[in-house]
Design a protein around this nucleic acid. Structure first.
Length: 441
RNA sequence: GGUGGGGUUCCCGAGUGGUCAAAGGGAACAGACUGUAAAUCUGUCGGCGAAGCCUUCGGAGGUUCAAAUCCUCCCCCCACCA
């Protein structure tokens, strides 16, 4: 079997590594502890963090022990790497709250039971550091001449806003993290985004200087979509891993809408399907790629939110956009079902009649007098304002139960209710279901 | 602390008394074409049941029939000097 580095390389995870040969041997020799830091800047991770998350999952699958390090301490300082502007500084309370959310999400990808993986917070040691001892013991190992040449500071040093001293210290703190994890957990491998290269190398060098030991670093390439956008960024904002922030339905839709050119690359990075099958995708072209996109969406949703949610999202997509049969020979390892018809009984029971389409509840009484369409679109959030809704409808982009609305003040009444539901659509892709509540309670 | 340059609608960026809800570009949205793709073309792109009116150009005052534009004070950013 190919070694782990080769596998990660083949799947597109590797940008740079330190001393590759030795690292290879090290990973072959037995269980390795590795770590990645996560910034607690928000209460949820998003799709942009998926590469590091998946890489930890791969490490664990291969018998190694991942550490997810929450940057509770470094978050108080703010990483300037690759940023054109200074970060907002976080309060300790915010960091704690965010760390909780992050752990919950990581748990879907990584098994933290029985020390199979660890979740640590660098606030536990960083906040205890004393300034003068720190400078004397570690600060002297850092050359400012070298630091100001680091790529991670470059953008900021060249920008108008500049770099302030607190941020300049970030590299030292991250290097110290690595040392701490090396000392206490035997961690000898740090991974991170390509913007972290400077910080990682700083840690590698610090450990060499103060412990005379070799430790390793791997960086991931920055993943962008073929159209140049950052991974996981849409006009509406980030695509979050927290189902309360981004509905599994929308998560699924994000992946279904993958650009043709990205399908195979994303399949390798964001699913666990075997590479031999992913390579076959190159033979697909045109509309056939859509089947692959369905599999991509199904698999990624399943990993992030579980099978039930993936099935719900799949079913809703099918009813809204039409059934698409995924041929048996495309990605055969995927557990997605292939007949294009009804789901197996077991799965139907599990999924039940759960609706993953964005929806809201409205009392039936409100339809007695009728609700003007543009108001309803605004109410449910399909439009940001009444004006926007009006434009949408005037441009012919609004549908009620599949029927295009001709005028913005079309009155929706009881007669538009079908099975206690009204299905609204905005444009080609955005759906919203209104569920009717019979009586006010 | 001194001197100079700035802060414009989601972003970049024009505008230096009325013709300004504010050029141009990007993003976004809708339509056409399609495959829930890309590219392209067309339209839209502050709010208001839409007539007209209201709110917006760092903040607060002021001048004027009229202010993003002029004046005063304040806040913030940048450059050079100290």
């Amino acid at each position: 079997m190919a070694n782990l580095i080769d596998i990660l390389k083949e799947r597109g995870f590797i940008d740079q590594t330190t001393h590759e040969k030795v690292l290879d041997q090290y990973l072959e020799a037995g269980q390795v502890t590795c770590y990645i830091g996560f910034d607690p800047t928000a209460s949820s991770l998003h799709v942009g963090s998926l590469v590091p998350i998946m890489s930890l999952a791969h490490m664990q699958k291969h018998g190694h022990r991942p550490i997810a390090l929450i940057g509770g301490g470094t978050g108080l300082v703010g990483d300037p790497s690759g940023k054109t502007e200074m970060r907002k500084l976080l309060t300790p309370e915010m960091v704690d709250e965010n760390a909780m959310g992050i752990k919950k999400q990581l748990s879907r990808f990584i098994d933290f039971s029985d020390d199979n993986a660890l979740m640590l917070n660098n606030a536990d040691w960083l906040t205890k550091l004393k300034y003068i001892p720190f400078l004397r013991d570690f600060g002297r190992h850092f050359s400012v001449n070298r630091m100001i040449k680091a790529e991670s500071y470059k953008m900021r040093l060249e920008s108008e806003e500049g770099l302030n001293f607190i941020e300049f210290n970030y590299m030292l703190l991250q290097a110290y993290d690595f040392l701490e994890l090396y000392d206490h957990y035997g961690c000898r491998l740090q991974m991170g985004g390509s913007d972290q290269w400077g910080n990682i190398v700083a840690g590698v060098e610090l450990i060499r200087r103060v412990r005379q030991e070799t430790v390793f670093g791997i960086t991931f390439p920055l993943i962008t979509t073929s159209s140049g956008a950052k991974m996981g960024k849409t006009a509406e904002g980030a695509v979050w891993l927290d189902p309360a922030r981004t509905l599994p339905y929308n998560y699924y839709q994000y992946w279904v809408n993958t650009d043709d050119r990205d399908v195979a690359r994303f399949m390798a990075l964001f699913t666990f399907l075997p590479m031999e099958e992913i390579k076959e995708l190159e033979k697909l072209n045109g509309a056939d790629l859509n089947s692959a996109k369905v599999v991509l969406a199904f698999e990624t949703t399943q990993i992030a939110h579980g099978k039930e949610e993936a099935i719900n999202a799949y079913n809703d997509a099918k009813s809204q956009f039409g059934a698409r049969v995924v041929p048996k020979d495309i990605l055969p390892s995927s557990s997605i079902h292939r007949d294009g018809g009804v789901l197996p009984a077991l799965e139907i029971e599990a999924a039940g009649s759960v609706d993953s389409t964005p929806h809201s509840h409205i009392e039936i009484d409100r339809f007695k007098e009728g609700i003007p369409a543009f108001k309803l679109y605004h109410m449910v959030g399909l439009s940001n304002s009444g004006s926007a809704a009006r434009r949408l409808i005037e441009q012919g982009g609004a549908y009620v139960n599949g029927q295009r609305i001709e005028s913005f003040d079309y009155l929706l009444t009881d007669s538009d209710i079908v099975d206690l539901e009204i299905l609204l659509r905005a444009g080609k892709k955005r759906y919203h279901k209104i569920k009717i509540i019979k009586n006010k309670s």
